[in-house]
Write a protein that binds this DNA or RNA. Structure first.
Lengths: 347, 347
DNA sequence: AGAAATTAGGTAATCGTTTTCCTACATTCT
DNA sequence: AGAATGTAGGAAAACGATTACCTAATTTCT
């Protein structure tokens, strides 16, 4: 059969020459169709004996189906794209890492795309994923764009994470947390500690998550009869979260009554705020309570002075996969948690 | 031609029904082959006029080639897999982010894979990428494994980043920094500041990068006639870098002569060391100089007390792409930089 | 026992490209 | 002028799977 087979190739799955389903079929003594059926579990289409033969041939040859052929024929690939609006944000990286593990476990392959929050880039990626027949896209901070609206007609192929769809989509699959409840927890905690006056530094409210946090926090303060004057609500457009925090805090410290506790809608903002105090008002460092939002595991190590809401990023992976596999609309809110700072003072 | 075309579809690239190269060919009044040739720039195979016709048809129809078909036929895809040993490490996340941007710019699509430093997972991913006809894999912390050895026969399809191939590969493409020189810089800086005794906390030396840093630092100390006793070199196997730092520093503080400056082979280790001092020996916080390695942009904000070597992660992306496109072996060493802590004391 | 239904598996069409042959015409060389 | 070369483009064969359709042989139903 194989005249020039090198002698010392006892059982190594060589794969040298392209080994296709036809090779397997020949080796197992069945037709190509049968091999395909066995591999795809189309039972009641083959006998137990055939199955064994085929599986053994597959095993011995180390055969793996060519993805391109399968995709071409079936019109469906196992690719899932994660479109993140900003990979420099550690919380996005956490989600990406968690998603990768969970997706892989379910047999998907994750493509990572950084849209930099720009509609054009997002569209470019959405088109690219279309021509890849991607199973779905996971939008980690979606912005409005033509392709997204187009794709929204198949809501089962999109999962929105943290930030809701920029334009209402019926049948939306969503994974996130209960921002309203979380900021209520924050406000209540601050209220109990009687650390007035309070302040708020927030990010761009074009993100639904930020909007929920801001609105929720303002509403919570009102219902607690806790003063939160307009001058104590800061946002600087057009810069990174770190800068937003820094500039926000700087601005707050110019007020006649500087706040004693500051809620930042993200950890990065809190880092920035802390840095500002550190550089410009070191005396206030242990007087002002900073509350963040995210609480990445790293916080315990490098920002132990930070209180805040812990978002369970590690469980986002599984959640995303269930949203993906769900055949009906889904609004998956994962449990958040209040976390106290590990050190008493803002050292 | 199109009898039931909805009236209000003036120029929208509908894409509704599957629009293939045949559609374009028909619209342009040429054969399928010609369209393909125009799209792939096989010039001297078509006239300028034909090109215009085809391109216009492509544009009007919003046509994009089906990736699966192209891959199947040509046996080459534009997929590039980034196999990272640990995505929880912020420096890996930085590289991944930079790689994604650069790869995309060159028309590649990046698949992200977290191997968790385990050979089995790495092999699983390598096999998977094989069946995807991936253009290449970028190994961000490779471990030895059968599939890797197999793939090493095509060195042009692997790029090793930071950590060299676990087994020598002729024709290796490598992207990293000059660890030897970097740690020499560190040792000299420490030496000049006369902050003896010195100490070293390092990670697992199975990583070539860590090995180079450890060996280089020890050698540099020796050549500077700077004492670095065995008891001042710490490593705790089997835990995260953060824990390595914490435990290492804890151990160092039990010595009769605790060090005054400590070199940590990664920022995470330095974070851990700092945390240990913070919790157990706060009085020493401003006495002991900590030197890290990586210097992520976040350091300026949340670890301004940390000196160290700045690795130019943002330029890794371009470097990886050139390594990928290089037709000969490559050892690309990017310029590192010494960075002083932004705050005088280890506050 | 004969009809109907189920099981097992083969044949061949199909997915949308790329690419190898061809052919036909126009140019340049001898 | 005839041969050689180059240019432009069409027809059709791959690439490697999935799956609709078909045929036999078995089992189950009436």
């Amino acid at each position: 059969m194989t005249p020039k087979d090198p002698p010392n190739t006892p059982k190594a799955p060589a794969q040298s020459a392209s080994i296709s389903i036809a090779t397997v079929a020949a080796k197992a003594g069945v037709s190509i169709a049968t091999v395909s059926r066995v591999l795809n579990g189309l039972s009641s289409k083959f006998s137990k004996a055939t199955q064994t033969k085929v599986l053994q041939a597959v095993d011995e040859l180390g055969y793996r189906p060519t993805v391109a052929a399968r995709t071409l024929r079936s019109g469906q690939s196992r690719l899932v794209a994660l479109l993140a609006s900003n990979m420099a944000n550690p919380s996005m990286a956490s989600i990406a890492a968690a998603a990768e593990v969970a997706l892989r476990k379910s047999g998907y392959v994750m493509v990572l795309c950084d849209t930099h929050d720009q509609p054009e880039q997002q569209d470019e990626y959405l088109k690219e994923m279309g021509s890849h027949n991607a199973r779905a896209v996971v939008m980690l901070g979606a912005v409005d764009s033509p392709e997204l609206r187009q794709l929204a007609k198949s809501p089962e192929r999109i999962v929105f994470v943290n930030r809701h769809a920029p334009v209402p989509i019926e049948g939306e699959r969503f994974v996130g947390i209960d921002n309203r409840q979380a900021v209520l927890d924050v406000a209540q905690w601050m209220h109990q500690r009687r650390q007035s006056p309070m302040a708020l530094i927030h990010g761009d409210v074009r993100s639904s998550a930020t909007r929920e946090r801001v609105d929720g926090f303002v509403a919570a303060c009102k219902s607690l009869k806790q003063a939160l004057p307009r001058s104590h609500i800061c946002f600087t457009p057009g810069v990174s979260h770190l800068d937003i925090g820094y500039l926000g805090m700087k601005q707050l410290m110019t007020q006649k009554t500087p706040p004693l506790s500051v809620f930042c809608t993200s950890d990065l903002i809190a880092y920035g705020a802390h840095r500002c105090l550190h550089e410009l008002h070191p005396g206030f460092l242990h007087l002002i309570t900073l509350v963040g939002f995210d609480h990445s595991p790293l916080n315990d190590w490098i920002a132990p002075w930070l209180h805040g809401i812990r978002v369970p990023y590690e469980s986002y992976g599984e959640a995303i996969v269930s949203a993906l596999d769900s055949d009906k609309p889904l609004n998956l809110l994962l449990p958040h948690q209040w976390v106290n700072a590990r050190t008493a003072s803002a050292l």
